[in-house]
Amino acid sequence: MLEVNNINTFYGRIQALWDVCLKIEEGEIAALIGANGAGKSTLLNTISGVIHPTSGSITFLGQRIDGLPPHSIVELGISHIPEGRKLFTDMSVRENLEMGAYSSRVWKQKQETLEQVYQLFPVLKERAKQLARTLSGGEQQMVAMGRGLMSRPKLCIIDEPSNGLAPKLVTEVFEKIKSLREQGITILLIEQNVRHTLEIADHACVLENGRIALEGDCDELLKSDHIRKAYLGL
């Protein structure tokens, strides 16, 4: 579904990604793991068009998308749920969600999509009229995810959803991500919480110093010595 081929991305003169390749199959949860500064968010921002790679190509459903601006990429069906939630804090929950359907392809169906999002996150319906900044961290993450779903994505990129959440809420968020897969949405999950991630994902890539260090099915990765030592502390 998504193919990243040998991309190199720079911030000014500093190279952040080195020949990164990534392949995501339709209907799976693909995971990208790695430590702080490994280049995870850079890779995501490159996919969603916020920054452009210097070389290499990215194709989505057979179409080249590297070089397209972010809003065109959203139109094509890639939704990016950014790290740190980035809500419109002085808008209501409902307005936040509706803004998610901004791209013209889905604007007309926003009522219908809103009902589906409410079904997935019932708490958001209760909170619909509240300002987003008055919600708890976990609820804010739900708003961010709901907003990302409002564009009816085919591929949903979720950046660090467990960031800053209590362990109990982390489990809840991961449950929601699993239920997205059941609805046929392909997911690219970026996480530092390696154990949880490998448990729900189908396929994972490990990014180290801007390069893909390891990739494979999650069952295998969980058994790999490198993963166990470096990421699981076993």
Binding site: S48, V50, P70, H71, V74, E75, H80, I81, P82, K86, L87, F88, T89, D90, M91, E95, E98, M99, G100, Y102, S103, R147, G148, M150, S151
Partner: peptide, 18 residues
């Protein structure tokens, strides 16, 4: 609405396709 969302959080505004 798009203008308002830019005022609130420009990065998020561009992520949702504005």
């Amino acid at each position: 609405l798009a203008m308002r969302s830019i005022g609130e959080n420009e990065e998020a505004a561009s992520h949702i396709g504005i």
